[in-house]
Computed example of a mutant assay.
Amino acid sequence: MEVRHTTNPTDVKQYTTERLRSEFLIESLFVQDQIKMTYSHYDRMVIGGAVPVNEALELEDAATLKTEYFLERREVGFLNIGGPASISVDGETYELNKLDVLYVGKGKRQVLLSSLDKQNPAKLYFCSALAHAEIATRKMTMEEANPLHLGSQETSNERVLYKYIHADGIQSCQLMLGVTSLKSGSVWNTMPSHVHDRRMEAYLYFDMNDDARVFHMMGEPSETRHLVVANDQAIISPPWSIHSGVGTSNYTFCWSMAGENYTFTDMDAVPASELK
């Protein structure tokens, strides 16, 4: 597991493009028959990806977490963005189609990730946060998620936000997770921008063409920066940073949050006129 430490917003003002990417961009998450993970010291979130093909992959990394098993003190949410998947949780099996989500709570000892079709393997993205209580495992399909229609064609940000893990959906200790899909012809997400100083956030951009890119905006409102992001790449967004983006075409992204506040609407808006 790769470990990323927290950064000071004052220092980030001096970062080169290469340094900015090394701190906040996760470029390689999905490798056949591997689980790839990044441990962020922002709210201790683990961001990972798995592509099981020839064998089941077990969620584990005792060397980094220093625990007997992965979910000893953690919870995790899985989003399938590939072919049909199978996830075994202490012997109970859950099947996930594309854009289905599975929440697994603290205390589950063995989690095995598999594909149901080797010719069309699963592609499992997951985020894990610290947990203080045991909460039941639960699956949710995209059809069952709570859709929120936002934006408009006039502002190039017509999109649908699907909320899976949140206070009124799948229950968790602190993890929140959802998916936002932009309509054809729309390219902006989360504009006007905002920050939420009580929570960090992770973004996964996916369902993009190979030559498409998203310009992910970050930094303090008075000192913005950007990262150029390709398909299936993820972003670590610090609590002090805005998080917004614009693509060369429409795209889909998974957002997940962890931190002190569990209220979905806890955010401080930043008018575009204040961005620099």
Rank of each mutant, 00 (worst) to 15 (best):
S88L: 09
H5D: 11
C254T: 03
A56Q: 08
E154L: 08
A230R: 13
P84H: 03
G169K: 03
G105E: 06
H166L: 10
I26S: 00
C173M: 10
R19I: 09
P147D: 06
H5E: 12
L204H: 01
G91C: 05
H216I: 00
H166S: 13
E134C: 07
D268H: 14
M191Q: 14
T10L: 13
L227G: 07
T64N: 02
G48R: 01
F78S: 01
R225W: 09
E144C: 05
R109K: 15
D211N: 15
S88T: 14
P52K: 03
T141S: 15
S273M: 11
A50H: 03
T38L: 02
E158G: 12
H194V: 09
P238C: 07
H132E: 14
N54V: 00
Y42N: 09
K36V: 12
N189R: 12
M267T: 08
T93M: 13
L102P: 04
Y15C: 08
Y251I: 09
Y205G: 03
A56M: 07
T265K: 12
L96C: 05
V179E: 05
K163A: 09
D197H: 15
V89E: 04
K163S: 11
L25F: 10
I165G: 02
L102M: 06
P239R: 12
A167Q: 12
